[in-house]
Simulated scan of single mutants.
Amino acid sequence: MTDIRDRSWQRHDLLQVAPVAWRLALGSAPLVAELPFVRGWSERGWPVILRRHAEHEDSDLVPVGLPLPPGAGRHRVALLLPRAAILHIRRPPTLRAAAWAADPAWRATINALLELGERRHVEPAVVGSLLWQHLTGLPYLTPSSDLDLLWPIRCLRDAYPLLDGIARVQQTACLRIDGELILPDSTAVQWRELWNARLGSDDAEILGKSLAGVRLIARSSVVPSGYDA
């Protein structure tokens, strides 16, 4: 059985669950099954998202989750599934693919971020409310929604030039740009935290996230010493 801590599994992976296995899982969680949209989730072809194991959860089972839209109470569903229940795994869709579901007022910001990605040779992916509205068509986005993105970088020297660009787009954006840089070893760091730490000492620490957990990492291990911000 594949351990989800293996490098072939990543945070934010989208998992398609066999409908029969979904019904069996809900049979053990009747309160979850009664929440809006949950019972027919898999039958509609909607995926769930891979999450970290909570303390005391069975490590042989796959931990998955899904958020419900604000109109359904903003519940966050967490279930455990056998590995055999997962039909296939995919990464989150790109911002370019999901842009159709965004508020039209976001268009200028999205275009600027797509242009930035082209210049820096990075294809941003979507998570958060825009991801789920794109996948389901349900109304996840609200006037206060952030734009949550994942920026996978190929080498560490790309980090701050990319952050420079995101920060410039944020200056004129009509919404908050949130999200993470995904480092070459699959560790994720929040882009704002890394940006705000750019003038700190080399031993300054930032949070790094992976399926294995959360840990503090030195800023200098992400961005080469001597970078001129």
Rank of each mutant, 00 (worst) to 15 (best):
S8E: 09
D146K: 04
E123V: 15
C155Q: 14
I4T: 08
I110K: 03
W195Q: 05
G137P: 05
R120G: 06
T2Q: 10
I217Q: 13
G117R: 03
W195G: 02
R76C: 05
D13Y: 10
V214H: 08
A99F: 02
P93R: 05
R119Q: 11
Y227W: 11
G208K: 03
S144E: 14
E180G: 00
L24G: 07
R83Q: 13
R119D: 10
I177L: 03
I49K: 00
S210C: 05
I182P: 05
G137E: 08
V189E: 02
A204P: 08
I206S: 00
A204Q: 11
L216E: 11
D164A: 10
L163N: 03
L87R: 13
P69K: 08
H56V: 01
T2I: 10
R23H: 12
R83D: 12
A29H: 02
P152L: 08
A84S: 15
T142C: 12
V122C: 09
A84G: 14
L150R: 01
V222P: 01
V126T: 12
P19I: 14
L150I: 12
I153G: 08
A212H: 12
D164G: 05
G27D: 06
D185T: 13
L175I: 00
L80H: 04
L116V: 02
V17N: 00
L181Y: 03
T172R: 15
D6T: 02
W46T: 05
E205Y: 11
A18F: 00
A105S: 15
G117K: 03
A78R: 14
S201E: 14
R7H: 06
L216H: 11
D202Y: 06
P30I: 03
L138A: 10
V38P: 00
V127A: 01
W41V: 07
D158F: 11
G71H: 15
G40H: 09
H121C: 14
C174T: 11
R176T: 06
A72R: 09
D58V: 04
Q190F: 07
L175E: 04
L95F: 06
L135Y: 10
Y140K: 14
N111C: 14
H88Q: 13
L181T: 09
W100N: 13
V64A: 03
S145G: 02
D6F: 06
A188P: 02
A101I: 03
D203H: 08
L150W: 01
A97L: 10
P139W: 04
W106H: 13
L14S: 12
L114K: 04
V189T: 12
Q170N: 09
P124M: 03
V122D: 03
I153M: 07
L50T: 00
V48A: 01
Q190R: 13
E118A: 09
L80N: 06
D3F: 05
V64C: 12
A99Q: 14
H56L: 10
I177M: 02
Q171C: 08
Q16W: 14
E43K: 09
P139S: 14
L135F: 10
R96H: 04
A167N: 11
V38R: 14
V20S: 15
P143T: 15
V62C: 07
E34D: 13
R198P: 01
E118N: 09
A18W: 01
L150E: 00
Q190D: 09
L114I: 13
S59L: 09
R120C: 15
A29L: 06
G45Q: 05
G200N: 13
A98E: 05
P63G: 09
V223L: 15
A188K: 10
A125G: 10
